[in-house]
Structures are given as structure tokens and as C-alpha cells.
Simulated scan of single mutants.
Amino acid sequence: MELVRYLFDNFYTKNQLLDKANVDEGRLLELQDLEVMPRASYSLEISIQCDSFFGAYEASENSEFYSRGYLSWVNILLSLEKVEDAKQIFKDRYCQQLESLREDGIYSNNPKLNSELELTLDSEWKYFLDGTYGLCTKNGLPEQIASKEISILIASDFLDCGLIDGQGRKKLIKIIDLLDDVSSYFAPHERASSSRQKYINELRLRYDLISLSGKGNP
């Protein structure tokens, strides 16, 4: 199945994550219960039915899939004297990415990233912990989360636009390229309604855009 292939190609199973982080399942669950470690982005129930000379056989297995970027986050948590510091580390890295993007000319005046930034950070932390950003960004880490948020805020302004001038096209290409760099490709059943479809594929098609890296319409 294409879904199964996508998950195994792009994520770690829980056992793979545990092995690579050299941590046991109990410690992982403890970190999740302490609300410092993201939960799985996908849970897959696989049922098997087999019939042979020996008769019918049925089995089922549940597998959890984690963003591969979470390996580095586990290692950070294991190095902390107080795991409660993890939330501030997340916020600091998120804000540092916003500042880095601003220096590159990418910024938004939307209140979510200005006067309401602290509320946004608390909200982003919750999405991070429930595994949402492990699903919709390539590594699930604060830098890509910040890049995705600001890209979508800016790209949204172009959804209801008509014609755009040369400067507008250059800005939009830069924003879509950034979003393309950090956005996951999504599982097959999610793609048609995904943010990648809405803010990357459809905007490139609408404005006939070629990215700075040479990518064009889907």
C-alpha cells in the first residue's frame, strides 16, 4: 500500500526511535506524560488475513510513527537537568527562526507573530506535542514550524488576489519556496486537502510560478 510505504520511508516507528535514541519505552511515555515530548503523528492498525493448507490465520498490529526530527528532540530532553525547560527551548528556537527570516526579508505584520506572539507560541507548543507538526513539516522541529506558520500567513494574503505585479511575484515565489522546503508531502489520502496543495500547488498554478530552485507547477 502507498500509505504504508510513505510512512516507513519518511518516519521512524516507535521502536526505531527508541533504538536510535537508546531509550526505553517507559522513559518515552514518561516524557510524553510530562508534556515535553511529542506524541506519534500517525497510528497505523494493520490487519492480516491468511489462508493456507493449515487453515485460516488472522492477526493485527498497531504501529506508531514519529517524525525523524524527533530523534534530536529526544536527545535534547535527555541532556536537560530539568525537562520543564524544554518549552522555553522550543519558544527560543521558534523566535530565533522568525528573526533569521526577518533578516532575510521575510516577515509578517500579522498580530499572531507580533502582539499575540506569546499566545501563538503556546498554541504552537500544543500542536507540537500532539504530533501535528510531525505530520505536516518535514522534521517537526521549531525552525520548520516557524517557517511554515509565517509562510502560510503571507501566502494567505495572495489567495484572494487578482493580478500581482513583478515585486509581488518575486515575494510569492520566495514564500512558496520556503514553504515547499519545510512542508511534508503528506500521506496519500491527505494530499488533496493539505496545506501543500492549497498554498504551494494551487498558488503556483494560479500565478504560473517557477520557483527559484526551478520547481514549477505540479
Rank of each mutant, 00 (worst) to 15 (best):
V182K: 01
T132F: 06
Q197E: 12
I150V: 02
S108C: 15
D122G: 08
S47N: 12
S108F: 11
Q88A: 04
L18D: 06
Y6M: 07
S72D: 11
K91I: 05
L80K: 02
Y207P: 00
K138W: 01
I176T: 02
K87F: 11
S147H: 05
L7H: 01
D92T: 10
I173E: 04
L7K: 06
Y107I: 05
S184P: 02
F53S: 11
L80I: 00
N22R: 15
G55S: 03
I152P: 01
K174C: 15
P218A: 11
N75Q: 15
F128C: 03
K91R: 06
R206E: 02
I154M: 04
G140Q: 00
L71M: 00
Q167Y: 13
D24T: 07
S115G: 03
L3I: 09
S211G: 14
A192T: 07
L7P: 11
E45C: 06
S213W: 13
L71W: 07
L28V: 12
N109G: 10
E84V: 09
E143A: 13
S194E: 00
T120N: 03
L141R: 02
R102C: 02
L163P: 00
R93N: 11
L119S: 10
L117A: 09
S147R: 05
G134P: 05
K198N: 06
K14R: 15
C161H: 10
C95E: 01
G214S: 00
I164G: 07
W125M: 07
I210F: 05
G162S: 00
L153A: 08
V74N: 01
E2L: 13
R206Q: 15
V23K: 10
I76T: 04
S60Q: 12
A146R: 04
Y185M: 08
L205T: 12
R206G: 04
